[in-house]
């Protein structure tokens, strides 16, 4: 039931953004249709949405999330400039390979966000997840270290520290 309420609020929010009233005249009609549609969707598929709806109320998770966002954008811009320099040099300075890193995150959402962050940051692309043993297989465009521990400390740890506080 709580999961359904969370999905209802999220759906209504996205609906209101999509049907943003430019001059504010049809606002109540949009709101009424949005409540009907979001209620229907939440009633049908609400139970699959999240297994721990309590996490949506805790305020400190949002604070950590807004701390995580600018760091992520900065890493993303650094990654792009790095990749562009690699592309336009005539000798193509790449040294690729697939390495294995360890992670201690357990929840599905946390693992998904970790894989997305790894994909959008310097030189790395997550290929597969071994969820039972907690391993991530990462394609790295410039392999600095083949060892599991040291690769983990280079790739994963700066995100994992924050993502644990958000999603676990």
């Amino acid at each position: 039931m709580k999961s359904k309420i969370v999905l209802f609020i999220l759906g209504l929010f996205v609906w209101l953004l999509l049907s943003w009233p430019a001059d504010g005249q049809d606002f109540f009609q949009h709101l009424l249709v949005g409540i009907l549609v979001a209620g229907f969707v939440a009633f049908m598929t609400g139970d699959m949405f999240t297994s721990r709806p309590k996490h949506f109320i805790q305020f400190r998770r949002y604070v950590w999330f807004f701390y995580y966002l600018p760091m992520f954008i900065w890493e993303c811009i650094k990654a792009n400039i790095d990749v562009i320099i690699r592309i336009i040099r005539p000798d193509l300075p790449i040294n690729p390979g697939i390495v294995k890193v360890k992670t201690s995150l357990k929840s599905d959402t946390g693992l998904t966000f970790l894989a997305n962050s790894i994909t959008l940051t310097p030189g790395t692309l997550s290929v597969d997840i071994d969820k039972e043993r907690g391993f991530l297989y990462v394609h790295w465009i410039d392999v600095k270290d083949k060892d599991v521990e040291r690769a983990t400390s280079i790739i994963v740890e700066r995100f994992e520290r924050i993502l644990r506080r958000i999603f676990e």
């Binding site: 993303c76 990749v83 562009i84 790395t124 692309l125 465009i141």
Partner: peptide, 19 residues
Amino acid sequence: RLPDVYNRLQASTKCVTLG
């Protein structure tokens, strides 16, 4: 320019998404 599927995926996904 890049030589293989994984490298192409890296360059194109990052640059085109941020762009």
